[in-house]
Design a protein around this nucleic acid. Structure first.
Lengths: 228, 228
DNA sequence: CGTACTGTTGAGATCCGTCAAGCACCGTGG
DNA sequence: CCACGGTGCTTGACGGATCTCAACAGTACG
């Protein structure tokens, strides 16, 4: 994605303030009114919604390079929370700076809208998984999606990747109980497809896993934003 | 939402081409490359993804006033399909016109991004339902969300609304079998909470239904886009 | 008058959740 | 050094929510 000098300047200005956050302490919480977003520099984050009964649903995971809280900047109050999975670094983006940037460089607006569209496409695919795939396929698909996203930013290969998630994170993301996640992971391991252990995901049979999950990465639109 | 004259002109130009589509015949299909979006004038549409095994997951329903296919305009190929539930009228919006409009009026870009954010918030809430609510609560929540959205455009009240969906639509949207949807609807009816019949949804006990579903419409952000 | 679609109901199977217990690891503090 | 609590992982037994299969009724429509 080629930028003009002007666009680069505007983009740089958005990145000014870098902040560190510790694992487990929410960046943004459900119902918060203050509006600012972040661009994740290092570490993993998850966005989730809590239910009155205490259960939670993780909507998405953010990895380095991802926008974080774009939605809470335009909607008045954040309808969800962000939890750092590990200690992270993130650059703060103020609402006013972003809207200001739109006025200066409309192509940037299109790029941000592209990012929002891609986010939504991922959530929709996630919804498909939870609604229509059984537990084994769902887990397999999830591991593959993460792999594809991480590979884009150089954090993984077809062989596997470092993954700081616990089985509880998987359970909350996939709409399963942690007990069942554990059983499914064991099954995938025993079938020689994939191993999720000690902070690493290893693809023992990448091709077989893709076949099982019927994984098609088209929705990830890996070609980047198209600029008018 | 107050617009300047200039913005109104740009917005009007987007609406030029109105087209009619018949029920059941897809407007946009999964994998299609051509890029244009629509603004729905009359009728109901659903957006869905098909699985290789034939089952489908409906991601969202669009009602009059909603944007339709905003995502397929920025991503290269549409990753999902749109099916008119009934005969509809929709105004076509070309990709180039939209990007052009961003350049002229950045506030419009913010408004469109707001619309995209709201869409995503709805999908996330949908995901929460499918992942973490049992069938009865899920159906109740769904009926209430539609009610709130329809009320905003004058198509329903707390008493009920006209609803052209079949039980199959509900099943595909909620990640349930149509058989089970039928049983749940019967239960809601017998409990005196809501009736889904003959193209009408009637709230027999709106308050009770809200309590059962723990419905909180905050995520719908009914205050409209905020303009810089 | 058949055909297709939607809705309805029952019976049986199964996937997955809940409850429960136990193990491994790790950092803390005595 | 060891006791201890916390967190995460593992496994078994049981129950239930939901699915699948199957049959049938009502309605619209050609």
């Amino acid at each position: 994605m080629a930028l003009t000098d002007d666009e680069s300047v505007v983009l740089d200005r958005l990145h000014q303030l870098r902040r560190r956050f510790v694992a487990g302490k929410d960046l943004v919480y459900q119902g918060q009114a203050e509006q600012s977003a972040y661009i994740l520099c290092a570490g993993w984050v998850c966005s989730y919604k809590l239910q009155p009964n205490g259960s939670r649903q993780i909507a998405d995971f953010q990895i380095p390079g991802d926008f974080l809280g774009l939605r809470s900047i335009l909607l008045r109050t954040s309808d969800h929370s962000f939890e750092p999975i590990v200690d992270i670094m993130a650059a703060e983006v103020h609402q006013s700076d972003l809207l200001d940037a739109f006025a200066r460089t409309p192509r940037l607006a299109a790029a941000v809208l592209w990012a929002a569209s891609r986010d939504e496409a991922m959530v929709v695919e996630h919804l498909v998984g939870v609604g229509r795939r059984d537990a084994e396929v769902r887990v397999a698909h999830f591991l593959l999606e993460l792999s594809a996203r991480l590979a884009l930013v150089g954090l993984g290969t077809k062989a596997g990747y470092a993954c700081p998630l616990s089985q509880y994170h998987l359970a909350d993301a996939l709409g399963l109980s942690s007990v069942h996640v554990n059983r499914v992971l064991r099954k995938l391991r025993e079938q020689g497809l994939a191993t999720f252990q000690n902070g690493y995901v290893t693809f023992d049979d990448h091709e077989g896993l893709v076949a099982l999950a019927e994984f098609d990465p088209a929705y990830l639109d890996q070609t980047g934003p198209l600029l008018a």
